[in-house]
Write a protein that binds this DNA or RNA. Sequence first.
DNA 1: TAACGGGCCGAAACCGGTTACACAGTCGTC
DNA 2: GACGACTGTGTAACCGGTTTCGGCCCGTTA
Lengths: 327, 327
Amino acid sequence: MTIRDVATRAGVSPATVSRVFSQPETVAPGTRQRVLTAAEELRYAPNPVARSLARRRTGNLGIVVPDIANSFSAMIIKAAQQEARHAEYALFVTASEELVDDEERQARALAPQVDGLLLTSPQASDACLRELADIVPVVVTNRLLDSVPAVLTESAQATGHAVEHLHALGHREVAYLAGPDGYSNQSRTSGLQAACARLGLEPVVLGPFPARFSSGVRAADLVLAAGVTAVVAFNDDIAAGLLTRFADRGVRVPEQISVVGHDDTALAEMVTPRLTTVHIPAAAAGATATQLLIRYVRGDDSGVRRYELPSELIVRGSTGPVTARST
Amino acid sequence: MTIRDVATRAGVSPATVSRVFSQPETVAPGTRQRVLTAAEELRYAPNPVARSLARRRTGNLGIVVPDIANSFSAMIIKAAQQEARHAEYALFVTASEELVDDEERQARALAPQVDGLLLTSPQASDACLRELADIVPVVVTNRLLDSVPAVLTESAQATGHAVEHLHALGHREVAYLAGPDGYSNQSRTSGLQAACARLGLEPVVLGPFPARFSSGVRAADLVLAAGVTAVVAFNDDIAAGLLTRFADRGVRVPEQISVVGHDDTALAEMVTPRLTTVHIPAAAAGATATQLLIRYVRGDDSGVRRYELPSELIVRGSTGPVTARST
DNA sequence: TAACGGGCCGAAACCGGTTACACAGTCGTC
DNA sequence: GACGACTGTGTAACCGGTTTCGGCCCGTTA
């Protein structure tokens, strides 16, 4: 079942068989047919590993996400997979489970087996990332790094809109639950701070918290203790945790406290009340990053090496006007 | 940066360099050290593709899941990844997005690049799966197939417990929302039917529905129209959809209707009220399947080729006694 | 001292493809 | 009729490792 078996059976040279499978148009129709039927009879399929070695490219792309269980990652992966398939690449996914050295290990293991690597919200050091970028074409999301193409989901403006929204509803005491340090949290924090400054608010910043549901549950009591009437969370998971704990404590949302999330994951529409949240274009980011990576890998240098995707505030049921009981 | 570069620099043969990286104990300490420093200086790392070709194994495992965004899949992946890493395998994930021929394509693309393949709740035909199992060691979950090792999450008993639980709470009119056809749905349906028969209930079976949140939203109205006081859903996503729609329609859970899910995903604790659900040991299934696959790949034939993992009813806030208003 | 055994290492074949180059045959052109 | 261009195919080197086999050297034993 190697190329030479097919070659002898079809009465041609291995080179011809190889051509039939990689550049069919360069071989005469008759010969091609003979080779194909021989291959069919032997149930032959080219060995992708050998092919990768000889061609010095694998036809695979890799993506590393912080957490597979996170539906934000899932949206990126889905979009990336679609783009990859569209360009005839296979996409390999690995998760770092939010551990920095795991992330590095995964990336290093993946790097030499793929033609390009997509690192989403990487936590690794600049040096490490640059080293990886030396081995294989790398595109990052939500991370700024000289000379590494990047797709950023910018949310300063939309987070500002969230603050304006709360202000318009009469809220004057607002808390922000910070997420893990990184581009996303910086972008959100700065947008929030800027808007608060414009409106004369002084936000209570708590955290940083791991971007998980349980963080929200824990943070809920801190938020209540802080005496605010509205809270903006780093992401929807944290916001959902808030909602649950508020419900347990008999605090009604949005009557007594308003909650805003970030990301607009599926969860935002699954909780009660539905979450007002800053929609982050995860799918677009995944798709854009993958296209960028593919162009990069192929050498189609389009010049653009950095994208900033805008976000948007989605108002749903978890925010409402301040009532007398709020204060 | 090939093995020969290192060899000349260290003044040894390529074979020795190779041995240093694969069977270090067979080379004299002094030589080994010289090779290692030479490799270090050249920043050499063995090319995994070439290594795979020569060794005729890749050191990779593959897993195909129906839907990455599904947190049930995510739990399996996490467990599988952990087991794989533990055994020094890299794990490649791909998602079929619930499309049968996509699943087949993904699996076929993956098969020749990995040493073993884990197919979770596969939808492909028996013939197709057997063909894959011919190419590469395959383990499946939630699918019964002659001669293919499998891990099944059996839930007949626990689903029966859910029915008993509802019966004890006074429910006599119960609906079941079926999921997509497959081992899981069969196991759940049969457990439910058996328990109902024992208790003299006649369940209203609706569906099948895609195992998604939106299915639950849609099904909620059908459930209310059916006039039941309790509903068992194929999975938690559907159950969450029910909760949301019930809340929208002003139907209170569990006072007016009780809801039971399946899987016990993270979502079950994120919704209000928390879901009573049948805990399916997804993590255990992922871990067991991966261990089984690794043993299979390594030839450690342990004999056991089929595991049935038991489930368990977890009672939370979405089920309660029938009240006067229920009927 | 010769025979033997084991540890260490190198030469070369091999894994299964790809591809640069050479060469033969066909066709069109002057 | 000779020349060049073009098409189709084969030869052989190559991708970057692994591994078999055998040789050398040294210490041990008879």
